[in-house]
Structures are given as C-alpha cells and as structure tokens.
Nucleic acid binder design. Structure first.
Lengths: 257, 257
DNA sequence: GATCAATCGAGAACAACGTTCACTTTGATG
DNA sequence: CATCAAAGTGAACGTTGTTCTCGATTGATC
C-alpha cells in the first residue's frame, strides 16, 4: 500500500528520493492531524480540514493513507511509541538506588505525558473509537512498550528484594493459569502473586490517569498541582500495599513538576 | 423545548394524553438508539438510522430532541441512572453483616452492568465524545449516584469499625483542603484519610472496569469468569490495603456469576 | 538529453450525515 | 363544528469520507 521496497539501483537502499519525500508528506499529515485534534478539542479527525490546512485536495491524502481510519491507526501507533519512549527514558535517567525513585520517575512521566496530550491519551487508553480499528499485530509491540517498561521496574524491585510479594497461595488458584500465561517469557523467576500485583498496579495507574484526563474524578483533586500530589500519594500508597517497604517508598523522590 | 406544562383542563395534571404519547415516542427513540449503538458496535449515534428504524423521517425526530447531542445526553443521563439504581439495589439487597459482603455486592453489580452494557459504560466513563456534551447541572446528580452508593458503604464500614483508615497525617498536608472540600455535607465524622481512600477506591474500581471493558488489560485476565475472579480478587486486596480487617474481607461473599 | 512509467495532485462526483424550513396532516379542545 | 398546536413529510443545504478520471510532475533508463 504505502511504498514497499522499490526496484531501485541499490537493492539495500530502501529510501529513494521519492520515498523520503513520501514519508515526509505522510508525517506532515500526521502532524497537522494532531494539531487540529488538539485545537478543535474533538477527538474525531476531520480529513478535509487536514487537507485544507495543508493546501491540498482531500483526495490527495489518499496517496498517503488508504482511509481516515488508517491515519487514526498511524496516530495511535505513534502515540503508543511516544509515551513508551518517554517513560523508558524517564526510568533510565533515574538513579538505581534502593527506593521507589525509578518507579516514581516512570509513572510521573506517564502522567505528565497524559495531561499534556489528553487527546492522544484518549486515543490509546480511552473508548475504542470505531468498530475495532487497531490491527493488533502492528500496534501490539508499540502498545506493550509503556507497560513493559513499568513491569520491568517492578521485576527489578522484586529481584532486589525491595518489594516482597505475598505468598502465591494468597491469589485464588483459578487465576494461576491465566497469570502464568502472562509471562510469555518463561524465565519466570517471578512468583505468580507478583504478576497479579503488576496487573493491579497497571489498573490503578490507568484508572488514576483516565479519571484525571477524562474528568471522572472529583474536581478538587483533578487540578494541576493538586492532581499531581494526589497521584503521587496514590501511587506510593499502592506500592506500600503491594509489599514494598514503607521506608523505601518514602525514600523515593518524585520528579519536579 | 420538550413539552413544559401545558394549559390543559386540569392544571395539576401534568400528563395529558398528548404528553404521554410524546414521552412514549421519545423513549422509543432512546430505545432504538441504544439498540443500534449496540448492534453496529460503533458508539457514534446515527440519527437517520434511528429514524429509518422507526419508520419516520429524520426531521421528525427534531420534534422530540433538539439535536443529536441532545439524544446522546439523554442516553448518558439514563445510563447513569440505570447503573446507579442497579448498584443501589444490589447493595440494599445484601445482608448488613460485619463483612465486605455489601461492598462486594455493589462493585459486582457495577461490573456486571459494565460488561453487559459496554457501549453505555463507554458513554459515561470513556472518552468524552464531542467537545463537552454533558450539561453538568442536569446530569450531575445522576452521575454521582453510583459513586455515592459506594461511598455510603465505605462510610458505613468506617463507622462500624470494620474499616479503620490510617492517621490523617499520613496523607500529605497539601491535599487536606481539597479532600475536605469533597465532603460538601460537613457532617464530616469521616477522617480526611478515609476520603482519600474513597477516591482511591473509586479510581481502582474505574480502572479495573475500563481496563476490562475497553480491552486495555492483558487478554488472559479479561475473559468472563476469569475476569470476574480477578476483579473480585483485586477488590478484596484493595479493601485489605485500605485498612479493612483481612478476616472481614474474606468473610464477605461475592454474588454468584 | 529524450523517453516512459510511476507517482502526485486536482477536480468533479457520489452517498450519507446532521440540520433547517415550509408544508400538510392530525387529533384533542373551545 | 371550528380551531390551533403538535406530529410528521419532503425537499433542500452544507458537511463529511471516499472514488474516479485526468493532467502534471518527477526520476530513472536507453
């Protein structure tokens, strides 16, 4: 559809001049689409408006994307990648000490991205928009990125003894198969209960962020600085509840606003 | 707009024959709209399709609703009310013993409604659809209903000593004003920390449900019975983390599937 | 450098959508 | 019966996403 490998002179060189120009225009389309979505508030992409903004004809866009949904899908994948990279970098930049600092760095980077890009957050973590638009195969790896980064930090906390999950028999036996299935990589040093904790942590995280971004949280707590503080407090409480030592949690420093 | 009191013969009688017929048609519109949304999967209401299904002209619908958004708003308010009543009844029907049974009854009723009405759940707890469609004044009381019911049970648990919240000074001082503001009704026997717990519990609940309904949760745990079990487990863990006695939580019985 | 095919873009057209407006029909009320 | 507001029709308007045809532009090839 969108330029597979061409029969160029040098077969290894996949980016001919044409292809680069093509990709540049495609990126401009995505960029303008993002801007319009942010400006008009609505999260429904207007194809003709994008063309108008670019000084093009609506039909010309079809040289770059097969449909409106295809553009949306591209935006979704890009958003997944963007937030994933943001969180990864925030974690990597934090010190590797025996505290919750790294985890806090990750979740705060996630929250910051979410409140700064509410429409893109809604695109990927909100109501699935059309029927089902996400071609799982393409977007799955991108979608997992943020979760994988956070999961990695939890594993590290468990490995280093910072977080001690409860006994496996505290989680209902019926759930064990499903939880074990989650660890595709069966290097599973991780106890089942820790996997359950990871999923629960993810749910709390998503719940906190979507409550705030979508306005389903009581107003007084949704604001900028207050929202950030309450988020921080909630995450720390959750970590303690998960079995991380209280002093390790409190020793963790949150990134500045 | 939609039939205020008419100058009928009996001024006290607000429902003349006409008005009843009017309301009946309006309800049919809502009903058909709900069915189409469920059938076509999409959560974007198609006005002309509704009219078609009813054997009417699209313009005729405007005798009943001022716009497409008005219908959506009506659906949203109705959904709020429906889930609110469902949860209220489930709680009321549960025994008043010294366990988590009532809370479990409430959250399971919530979950059941959510998975059985995914589109309506998305309508009220998903991405806000257009710019901002919800006229707060009208829908606020309906929107609060479910949360208020759950909140009431938490208060009861605190009052009866079943749930002992941590000291107030464990929650950051900067958050106290906002949290106190949440208790409009200043009969506030409730400690600030309990308010924080209530909000957090709400976030976990919403996070768990939207993860499952919107498919943002790892697949193995999203299924029907497994999903229900994991949800139950998560809620119980959360209650324990909040300070409810472990044996009281475990003594609670969940409603059957 | 001329040639040729692939690409790019324009422009008109189509169906479908939400909405408006002028009009008939209808059915209860004086 | 006469009246008059409500209910409903049908045509129209401005949008939207999408398709198709047809020139123009471009980049590689002889």
């Amino acid at each position: 559809m969108v330029g597979t490998a061409s029969a160029g002179t040098t077969p290894g060189r996949t980016s001919s001049r044409r292809q680069r120009r093509h990709e540049a225009t495609a990126e401009e389309i995505r960029q303008v689409a993002r801007e319009l979505m942010a400006r008009d508030g609505t999260s429904s992409l207007n194809l003709r408006a994008v063309a108008r903004e670019m000084g093009m004809t609506p039909s010309a866009l079809y040289r770059y994307y097969a449909s409106r949904d295809a553009i949306l899908t591209a935006l979704i994948i890009e958003a997944y990648d963007q937030v994933g990279e943001t969180v990864e970098q925030a974690i990597a930049a934090a010190p590797l000490d025996a505290s919750s600092t790294r985890i806090l760095a990750g979740v705060h980077a996630f929250r910051r991205w979410a409140v700064e890009h509410p429409h893109e957050f809604g695109l990927i973590y909100g109501t699935p928009v059309p029927g089902y638009e996400a071609p799982r195969t393409e977007s799955l790896s991108a979608a997992m990125r943020t979760g994988a980064a956070m999961f990695g930090e939890l594993v590290r906390a468990v490995d280093s003894g910072l977080l001690v999950p409860p006994d496996d028999d505290t989680v209902p036996a019926e759930l064990h198969p499903s939880l074990r299935e989650l660890l595709l990589d069966p290097r599973a040093e991780l106890p089942i209960s820790a996997v359950a904790l990871a999923v629960q942590f993810w749910m709390v995280l998503l719940g906190a962020l979507s409550s705030e971004v979508f306005g389903h949280k009581p107003e007084p707590l949704a604001g900028g600085e207050t929202g950030r503080l309450f988020f921080d407090y909630t995450i720390r409480q959750t970590l303690i509840a998960m079995g991380m030592a209280r002093n390790a949690v409190e020793a963790g420093v949150s990134p500045p606003a």
